[in-house]
Design a protein around this nucleic acid. Structure first.
Lengths: 236, 236
DNA sequence: CAGTGTGAACACATTCACAGCA
DNA sequence: TGCTGTGAATGTGTTCACACTG
């Protein structure tokens, strides 16, 4: 059992093609599901089962996987371990990512202590704050550094990603500092539009936006407005 | 200045149509930008200016606004105050939303104290935790309630939305309790796929997913792979 | 023959050019 | 004249049916 399909060109195959953004987002979910299966000691899954676990339908799952290559066995399914490692390398999770968190308020501390990072190949290597009362305190295994030392500490810790967990007002200037220090991947929780150069990747999470979207749907659900033809059930 | 276009059928117009999900997400950004302009005392904006402030291009902004109705003035632009209120009512932000936060760890506390909620029409009315050491403590204006009292407290506080900020392992059962207690809008930060009935709206934020997506792009940027024709710059 | 992999059909989102109005 | 509003064209994402294979 679990014979591993052709290993030639280990992480290669159709690596050159861009994975469509929508698929990319779902691949991370499949990875999570595969890790759960792995933890349960399950060795094989069918696309139906994995799709169920990931909350999508199986044709979509298969199409998503097809952007990476053909890692399943027809009539059988996927080897959990093998598929897991294939997706991981495709997503670039085989190298170590060193994350700096800027802002050690509740959110920054929550992120610093979030086990989901460590367990999925991200190491938090620095934590910054501007508040003198917070600087120097310990959060988990980390000591909070002063933002003044941003560039220095980023260099020393060889951080290659950053998370912005600071108030909106100071986000742009700190973002600029991160970029100047050579960071090219930033995840921002600040509720502002950040200006960045082309070569920098920025992703944003805005919790108020999420609630507003929920509010919109909730409002429509309660007013029995013009609920037109096709049942408008927003997918998970 | 600022003559207000036809008020007949106040919040009506083409309210019946569903706003496309992609537009909906951006409308919340426009709202944020309009609030900033309002704070600066600016009364009018053109689609170019507002698009710039929101980090999108202006045809897209105009198309998004067109799903709500025609609230601009040709040759002039938009009245900031008026457009702000039109988008707000379209999104259902004119009624009061009462949010319960389940989980008073660092993340839950960060959310409870997040000024972006209060300022945008969301009131945090309850905060729950399972840990006896945390129950009873104060976070901002709130006292942490025991999860055992979930249904009771949700009823008393008339919460109509919930945020799940709990570990993956207990998310599903708490989600079920929320649903049983009549909550139909849930924002989950737990890194698991949640099972929900059709009438419940669920949105998910997964920070590890965000970092993984960044990792993918960063990996591609460093390996000068097959960088094919069209410059693959992931939009903000 | 069960279950993967994928091309072709469909639905949705974005872009663009320009008509229409203050 | 300047800027909004929108239909038509393009591009992207999803669904589906089924060919293919272990």
């Amino acid at each position: 059992m679990s014979e591993i399909p052709g290993l030639r060109s280990a992480a290669g195959e159709q690596q050159g093609r861009q994975i469509p953004p929508a698929s990319l987002a779902r691949l991370t979910i499949y990875l999570r599901a595969l890790n759960s299966l792995l933890a349960e000691g399950i060795e094989r899954v069918s696309s139906d089962e994995l799709a169920e676990a990931a909350g999508v339908n199986s044709p979509m799952l298969r199409k998503d996987l097809s952007y990476l290559g053909s890692y399943g066995t027809r009539g059988v399914g996927y080897d959990v371990q093998y598929l897991n490692s294939q997706i991981s390398t495709a997503l670039g999770l085989s190298q170590d990512w060193r994350v700096a968190i800027v802002g050690a308020g509740n959110l920054g501390r929550a992120l610093a202590g979030y086990s989901g990072f460590q367990s999925r190949g991200f190491e938090v290597v620095a934590l910054f704050d501007a508040d003198q009362l917070i600087v120097g305190t310990e959060v988990g295994w980390l000591r909070v550094s002063p933002v003044q030392d941003l560039a220095t500490v980023l260099g020393r810790t060889r951080a290659n990603m950053a998370v912005l967990a600071v108030p909106a007002g100071v986000a742009q200037s700190l973002c600029d500092e991160l970029v100047d220090a050579g960071i090219t991947s930033i995840l921002s929780f600040a509720p502002v539009v950040l200006q960045i150069p082309d070569h920098v990747q920025l992703r944003k999470v805005d919790m108020a936006t999420e609630l507003q979207i929920l509010a919109y749907h909730a409002q429509r659900a309660q007013d029995p407005d013009l609920e037109s033809g096709p049942r408008a059930r927003a997918a998970q």
